[in-house]
């Protein structure tokens, strides 16, 4: 898996939300995005997902241009902000419904991934009765259930307790070992330092400073 972002800019009305972004990302690596709210982290993830079209520039995945050759990256899992599920269904039913679109995984795969994130597949509770943390776990299960080779995680630690955070860290490490390209946006600098192989600092839509060695990040103001 190789993700190439070339001169990507996005303007919304008069505001530039992505400003000449250039990146080359490889599989088996965790890339962290560090920046304030509204700096452009989520917008870049949306552009990679194919949910928004860049005003300029191209995004290619293994040579396939998003928006031209493909609408959305194949084999991608994502968690963008707070996950929203059908409130009148159980967590398992929600995942089974989404999995029915690609038909790549079985019911037992869904049950296994639910167990992996610490949820009970046999739990009959509807999602509307889930706590914020449980919804977040379900969102992570949804992102990883189809064994993605590209994983976009936007604030995956939101609403999670300590054990939940450890679980997500473990999942991220496992996915990396499987060769998955992971893009992780998080406002917690320490969390990002622990998990990422490479950190991009995002400011006003510019992904200008690349920190591949964590020491550089620690020394920077």
């Amino acid at each position: 898996m190789k993700l190439t972002i070339t001169h990507v800019s996005k303007k919304i009305q008069d505001s530039t939300v992505l400003n000449d972004v250039n990146m080359t990302l490889e599989g088996g690596t965790v890339y962290g995005l560090l920046g304030k709210n509204g700096s452009g982290k989520t917008m870049l993830m949306r552009a990679i997902c194919g949910l928004i079209s860049p005003t300029n520039g191209t995004i290619e995945i293994d040579g396939m241009m998003i928006g031209k050759d493909i609408s959305f990256p194949k084999n991608m899992g994502m968690l963008l902000e707070t996950p929203v599920f059908l409130p009148e269904r159980t967590g398992y039913e929600n995942l089974r419904l989404l999995a029915s679109i690609r038909r790549e995984i079985t019911s037992s795969d869904i049950k296994r991934v639910l167990e992996q994130v610490g949820l009970n597949a046999k739990d009959k509770r509807k999602v509307r009765k889930y706590s914020l943390g449980m919804r977040q776990r379900l969102g992570i299960a949804c992102a990883i259930m189809e064994k993605p080779s590209l994983l976009l995680l936007d604030e995956p630690f939101n609403g999670l307790d300590e054990s939940g955070c450890q679980l997500v860290q473990q999942i991220i490490c496992e996915q990396r070992e499987k060769g998955c390209l992971i893009l992780l946006a998080c406002h917690d600098r320490e969390e990002l330092e622990t998990l990422s192989d490479c950190i991009y600092r995002v400011e006003n839509g510019r992904f200008s400073v690349t920190v591949q060695n964590h020491e550089q990040l620690r020394l920077s103001p």
């Binding site: 997902c49 949910l51 959305f72 994502m78 968690l79 963008l80 902000e81 929203v84 989404l98 679109i101």
Partner: peptide
């Protein structure tokens, strides 16, 4: 859910 259905 953030476009989970459409991306699939």
């Amino acid at each position: 859910n953030g476009g989970q259905a459409i991306i699939r």
